[in-house]
Design a protein around this nucleic acid. Sequence first.
DNA 1: ATTGGCACTCAGGAACTCCGAGTGCCAATG
DNA 2: CATTGGCACTCGGAGTTCCTGAGTGCCAAT
Lengths: 339, 339
Amino acid sequence: MLEDRRLAVLRAIVDDYVTTQEPVGSKALVERHNLGVSPATIRNDMAALEDEGYITQPHTSAGRVPTDLGYRMFVDRLSTVKPLTSAERKAIQSFLEDAVDLDDVMARTVRLLSQVTREVALVQYPTLSRSSVRHVEVVSLSTTRVLVVLIADTGRVDQRSIDTAAPIEESLVADVRARIALVIGGRRFVEVPDLLAGFVESFEAHDRAFVTAVAASVMELAVEKSDQRVMIGGTANLTRRGDGLPMNLQSVLEALEEQVVLLKLLGEASAGDSILVRIGHENAVQGMEATSVVSTGYARGNELVASLGVVGPTHMDYASNMASVHAVAQYLGRILSDQ
Amino acid sequence: MLEDRRLAVLRAIVDDYVTTQEPVGSKALVERHNLGVSPATIRNDMAALEDEGYITQPHTSAGRVPTDLGYRMFVDRLSTVKPLTSAERKAIQSFLEDAVDLDDVMARTVRLLSQVTREVALVQYPTLSRSSVRHVEVVSLSTTRVLVVLIADTGRVDQRSIDTAAPIEESLVADVRARIALVIGGRRFVEVPDLLAGFVESFEAHDRAFVTAVAASVMELAVEKSDQRVMIGGTANLTRRGDGLPMNLQSVLEALEEQVVLLKLLGEASAGDSILVRIGHENAVQGMEATSVVSTGYARGNELVASLGVVGPTHMDYASNMASVHAVAQYLGRILSDQ
DNA sequence: ATTGGCACTCAGGAACTCCGAGTGCCAATG
DNA sequence: CATTGGCACTCGGAGTTCCTGAGTGCCAAT
């Protein structure tokens, strides 16, 4: 009971602070939420909450502000995911469904997510490792230059070019193309390295340098580069909050330009309905100490293929953002599965 | 002679303002540049320059600031492109030359350009229209879904997926693939629409719906989508200037998220050595009234294939940026041609 | 044409005051 | 013993005023 009210107070503080963006005091609190007690009582609770580290005062004679720990408590125990309106659902679906190719799907998703949440949106490209080889292509660009293209059944296309020391016969290219397609066509990406073992040896000795290079490229495409791309959008939303900047805009923008950082932020694709929230210092990335990340995995069919999420200030609207991230992940999964 | 000094004064004002970022007065001017005259004389010149619209006063008792017209005069008649140091050249070249594929080249270029200029960098993907079809691929993803892939001799790969009403036979897909490759393989992109005229009619009536869809996709890829992609980087540089924000960061970031706007900003790929500079209001894009764009075309071999450039505040260092943009365009062209 | 002299202007920083939201503590209360 | 009203205290930020100095325009002298 007493504990209950303390939590209610914390929730109220987070709610108010998120909307008004200003430290909230005991009086304003009882006015705006109908807790049936007096300001003095709230003050006691607030003092307790401060002792426990959930809230803090910017300076002596000011209201309280949630700490990272406070937000953590809020998302763990207090927030209820609010379902989207059916209008929103409609909008999301129709927005995604007339995409023409994978790049388009990703671009639309990132735009959608940033518009709905009004935060910075991140969408990771579907990983190749779980899917299989739809098609492999080897094309010569010039006598000493060859392009290797790998098409996944997700619709994703990756490519790599190879420079060779000696000129390559067109017949050899055709031969390699046919045989490599035979070996890995339709197989899963994870199997590719195994399948290619011994592949090189099946060629004549003087062709092996070239074949080795091709095989290496295919393996790189299948493994290394598999889920390295993240699309980002809505950076303008960082400047939205009334000019009082709670975080260092410069460092955030810098961090967001690094693909590596983005991947780190998105973290492991979390399963099914679970939504990952990293608050402030919890994501150990230089310059992002005052930002939070809300992310989740999305699936193609039943298999998780990548993550998506939003980045914003720690005082973001967690409940809404979690709902939006969840919904977009769902619909994105559906779109991908339909194909 | 008199005219000469007036221009020298304008140049000095621009120089000083670009570095200090503060309105510059007559006294500071004579101290920092050795014009052999007194402040009073400079004041007369400044009054004249103001009458002519090249400079202006933010408020009565302040120094002068260049107007857009002033910058225009500066880049047209006063600035000399400063050559890069050989160290810079080395850095640029080595930075670009170990790129593995086209995406990588573009990514490295945009990063390089933004680091060198410390502005926001834009790099447009090479247009397809001037180049030719290296390879065309038609792959079925499912019975009612087909992927069309077009590979240009620039190494660029584009794709589009097609949904069909009725299931498609694998043999038909193979047939279309072979015949379309025969028709447009190795031909220039601009020729593709002509070449495909009558293509559909060469098939049996009941296959034509599908073939039409494929042909339409190929044409779209070859024409419409040809140069629609622009890569952007270094947005963090927008916040660099000491917190005094001369332009509306929010609106600039918003504008930069629109591909269409980026293309508009880059403008026509200008020929050879000429570098395009759009100052402030000159680029009629909503929200970019306080920014300038320095851009130029880059070539593959002798053919212009696209543009690249930087975006920054009107008080940017035009001379340096022009030099950097020029140099990067040169090297990018060289890298592309080598392949 | 150039220059030194001079009166004038005014943005922006420093110093100051003041208000009120907010706090902690305490004694009273059901 | 949790709750509450009362009360003295704190102090950030808004508002005000003052003042300085960089910068200007104009004019008479060279």
